[in-house]
């Protein structure tokens, strides 16, 4: 299993367009991917689901922990991290 931590720096946070991009990218991977917000391990979010991503209500400054397990786990966490760092190509 791989995991990375990343801070949301784009203005919109994970709303609207960024959420749908995040979801689309996650969907490309076969691995089982999970996201946790601000160190809360009790609430697991599914990045392949747009409803789950939106329901996070993640705003600028929130910290995301992304974990992946499966054949493409390395690539999955790297790409998702980069996406957040690049502010979803804003």
């Amino acid at each position: 299993m791989k995991q990375v931590e990343v801070v949301l720096t784009n203005e919109e946070g994970l709303h609207a367009r960024p959420a749908s991009i995040f979801s689309k990218v996650a969907f490309k991977f076969k691995s089982d991917i999970k996201v946790y917000k601000n160190g809360n391990k009790d609430k697991v979010y599914n990045p392949k689901s747009i409803l789950s991503v939106l329901s996070m209500g993640a705003a600028k400054g929130d910290k995301l922990l992304i974990t992946a397990e499966g054949e493409d786990e390395d690539l999955a966490v790297q790409e998702l991290k980069k996406l957040v760092e690049d502010k979803f190509g804003e």
Partner: peptide, 9 residues
């Protein structure tokens, strides 16, 4: 349509 296709739902 995206909601309909939602995996978690």
């Amino acid at each position: 349509t995206m909601i309909l296709e939602d995996q978690e739902l």
